[in-house]
């Protein structure tokens, strides 16, 4: 009845796209965005599992993922602003080199 198995495949694809973004992009904002993509894919897997088993617990866990993502973004973006103020860049490799010196 539900396209739940296809949704699990979709969540796997989205999660791997998030991992690729995490590895490929060097900008700090993109790493935060890829964490968002991965959290969202995990939530999609939870909702698909909830549809497969006919239990609301998976949806409840998506409701818990939402505040975690909101708090993570609030603190992460505040840290990114501070890092940009201090280092004048958000390039992660450049920031790592600054820390070594």
């Amino acid at each position: 009845m539900f396209p739940a198995n296809e949704a699990l495949i979709l969540s796997a694809i989205l999660f791997s796209l998030g991992v690729i973004a995490f590895i490929v992009r060097r900008n700090l904002l993109y790493t935060l965005m890829s964490v968002e993509i991965m959290l969202n894919a995990a939530g999609l897997a939870f909702v698909a599992g909830s549809a497969i088993h006919g239990q609301p617990d998976g949806q409840v866990f998506f409701m818990f993922i939402l505040p975690v993502a909101a708090a993570e973004v609030a603190i992460g973006l505040a840290l990114a602003l501070l890092i940009f103020k201090r280092c004048k860049t958000l390039d992660l490799w450049a920031i790592a080199r600054i820390k070594e010196e």
Binding site: F2, P3, L44, L66, L77
Partner: peptide
């Protein structure tokens, strides 16, 4: 996709909180 999986409330929560609040902060 959430809507098609039988979770209309979570679809609304996703649009309002994720797309509406978090992404606008970004």
């Amino acid at each position: 996709v959430f809507y098609t999986l039988g979770a209309p409330f979570l679809a609304m929560a996703e649009i309002i909180i994720y797309a509406g609040a978090i992404m606008v902060l970004f």
